[in-house]
Design a protein around this nucleic acid. Structure first.
Lengths: 271, 271
DNA sequence: GGCAAAGATTCTGCATGCAAACAGCGCGGA
DNA sequence: TCCGCGCTGTTTGCATGCAGAATCTTTGCC
């Protein structure tokens, strides 16, 4: 089931867990549960009971319950009235809203940065990242793609930091914790499809214009650019959905229920 | 300590707790903990250990730990590296960001509603609420004020529902769960101060214009109006801060650390 | 044959015991 | 006198036992 690189969903950092040494049972359960959910190991309507999970994850019920509650807050699980959880399903509309929401919040971060001003050092750092991105855009190997992903996430993380607003940062984390609303969501499809190059070039141009807008204290422009920048993910999503096999390979794709297509037998409905 | 009505912070509904019959120990601990935090029962840097809380709340450690984790997600507590929690403190800048953030998200909800269209019945409901608000604005008794608060929250809740975006609703809940970012935050000050009447009238006008914008599918206008509408809270906050005694009476005021004033002896530093 | 009620089973929520980790403190040595 | 080290008390994290609730099944009655 895990023969593919999968972009390392099980190795993402936590951020809200107080323990930096992630050797507690809680973090173990969290990471493993996320991995199982992203891999679609739970059927859409399947009730997740604790005891089978205890047996499956090798942790006791206490940390498991903590992890389940955490994932409910994250939005991946939905609590049932009688207790227990179900993996939450997202429609394509939800995905669109998530991307738009990230654009709104990142746009606010960009506006804050522009309005409040940022040190020249921060702008230099953004420019440096973007310059490296420009070089990577014109390559096609897998390593360059991975470096691109890393740099892109760094760019967005720095942008959010520059807003100097802990509450905004928090709200953004709450949105981007969903796999399809992360800054680099659906970018995987680009490297394998003809339209990818164009989108990467456009994204780089967005970054350039955004830096300029922030430097010139143009808050409204910075916000608008960032919103449109986020919407590039939607284009990628549409490209991926058109080629269903590309879509299926995206991490967390099992969470997204596409509208019914003609062929419904291709989905590996693992029970 | 609790001689004042306090706007019923201990009786607010949950929303994310799966059990509708709130008789579990977890909800008991949650409600009581929130009440204690809002009442400023914990000193700013005080480490909240579990055992004293167990003794104080009368619940066991298991549901208490769940409640503490929930409050950390809510943003009221901050987890310490070695374990344990501290009540999070907010600066006046955080409060401003929280209000602005609510404006951004509610503005997005208004834009979604306008862009996607809403049934005429929903618009009628908004108009009915707003008509009642208009009558209440011109009264000065306490009951009218309470009814105003209720109707105002209904208006905003309906607006969010009309966006038909579960993710947006979620993100908004994450922001408005903070006491100073709720739609009716700082409105308490208005009823006791001369500027209150004007602000209420302006707010009513905002509502009217917002309904019109949504009806005419003017998404950008709806978003701008709603953002500016949220910023009315900031005016209220400034009025309250100017009269420190009014500010101190606001619920959750102990969470907000104002910049140092000349008199620092008036604060009851409970240790 | 269908429906309802009662029983059995499974599951969740809670309380508590135990061990490891962390903090505070005293003591010994340089 | 000051620094390092070990000890002890406290606290957190975890595992598990128990009781109540929900659900499914089965059986009896209409």
């Amino acid at each position: 089931m895990a023969q593919r690189p999968r972009r390392g969903w099980a190795a993402s950092e936590e951020g809200s867990i107080p323990n930096p040494a992630n050797r507690t049972q809680l973090t173990r359960a969290l990471l493993r549960l996320r991995e199982l959910i992203y891999n679609g190991e739970f059927a859409p309507g399947e009730r997740m009971s604790e005891l089978p999970l205890v047996q499956r994850l090798g942790v006791s019920r206490t940390p498991l319950r903590l992890a389940l509650a955490e994932l409910e807050h994250e939005g991946l699980l939905r609590g049932l009235p009688g207790g227990g959880y179900v993996v939450r399903e997202f429609t394509q509309g939800d995905v669109r809203d998530g991307v738009e929401l990230r654009g709104v919040l990142e746009g606010t971060a960009a506006r804050f940065a522009a309005e409040r001003g940022v040190p020249a050092r921060d702008l230099r750092a953004l420019r440096a990242i973007n310059a490296t991105i420009e070089k990577l855009v014109h390559r096609a190997d897998y390593e360059s793609f991975e470096r691109y992903l890393h740099l892109n996430e760094s760019f967005h993380a720095r942008l959010v930091k520059m807003a100097r607003s802990p509450l905004l940062e928090r709200a953004l984390e709450g949105v981007t914790s969903l796999p399809f609303a992360a800054p680099s969501a659906f970018v995987l499809a680009e490297a394998e499809l003809p339209a990818s190059r164009d989108i990467l070039i456009i994204a780089h141009r967005h970054h350039t214009a955004l830096i300029e807008a922030i430097e010139r204290r143009q808050g409204g422009r910075a916000e608008a650019i960032t919103r449109e920048h986020a919407r590039l993910s939607l284009t990628n999503l549409e490209i991926a959905v058109d080629q269903r096999d590309v879509f299926e390979r995206l991490p967390g794709a099992s969470l997204i229920s596409l509208p019914d297509e003609s062929d419904s037998n291709s989905g590996p409905d693992h029970g």
